[in-house]
Amino acid sequence: MLLPYAFGKIWYWGESRDYSLWYPAVKIYRNTKSHSWDETIDDLSKKIRAR
């Protein structure tokens, strides 16, 4: 799950966890900057390559 920086967040994804209480198989990657997904996508890409 790629979670946006501000708008579009839904309360049940939580504030800081990287997992969902309701959907334990979902890993959450949070965007840390408005209007730029570069850092978030790079982080996800590194984690995929490490597997």
Rank of each mutant, 00 (worst) to 15 (best):
Y29W: 12
A25S: 11
I28Y: 00
W22A: 13
H35G: 01
N31D: 07
S36E: 09
E39W: 05
A50Y: 05
Y29I: 12
L3K: 05
K27R: 14
S45T: 14
W11G: 08
N31C: 15
A50F: 07
N31I: 03
D42Y: 07
D42N: 14
A25V: 00
E39T: 14
S16Q: 07
N31L: 03
Y5W: 15
E15Q: 04
Y19F: 08
V26P: 00
D42M: 09
Y12W: 15
Y12R: 07
Y23A: 10
E15H: 03
A6T: 10
P4K: 09
F7S: 15
R17G: 05
E39N: 10
Y12E: 05
T32M: 08
R51P: 00
A50T: 03
W11C: 01
D18S: 09
R49L: 12
G8M: 11
T32R: 03
L3A: 08
I41A: 11
T40P: 03
Y19K: 05
S16D: 07
M1P: 05
M1H: 06
E15G: 06
N31G: 02
R30A: 06
F7M: 14
R51D: 03
G8D: 11
K9N: 13
W11R: 07
Y5C: 13
W37K: 01
T32W: 04
D42H: 09
A6Y: 11
Y23I: 03
V26T: 04
V26A: 11
L3Y: 08
T40Y: 02
L2Q: 12
W22I: 09
G8Y: 14
K27A: 05
D38V: 14
K33D: 01
K9V: 13
Y5E: 13
Y29F: 15
W11P: 01
Y29P: 01
W37F: 14
Y29L: 05
I41C: 09
A50W: 02
I28V: 10
D38K: 14
H35C: 04
S45R: 11
K9M: 08
W13P: 00
E15D: 10
G8Q: 11
L2A: 12
I28K: 02
I10Q: 10
I41Y: 08
L21H: 04
S20E: 00
I48M: 13
Y5F: 15
I48D: 04
N31F: 00
L3D: 03
Y23D: 08
Y19P: 00
S36M: 07
R17A: 15
A25D: 09
S16M: 03
T40H: 05
R51Q: 07
A6V: 13
A50N: 09
G14P: 01
A6S: 15
V26R: 03
W13Y: 11
E39G: 08
A25G: 03
K9I: 12
Y5K: 14
T32P: 00
K33A: 07
Y23F: 05
W37D: 02
D43P: 00
N31T: 10
S45C: 14
L2E: 08
K47A: 14
G8V: 13
V26I: 08
R51K: 12
E15T: 08
Y12L: 13
M1T: 12
W37N: 10
M1V: 12
D43F: 06
W37I: 07
Y19Q: 04
W22L: 12
W11F: 11
D42K: 14
W22G: 10
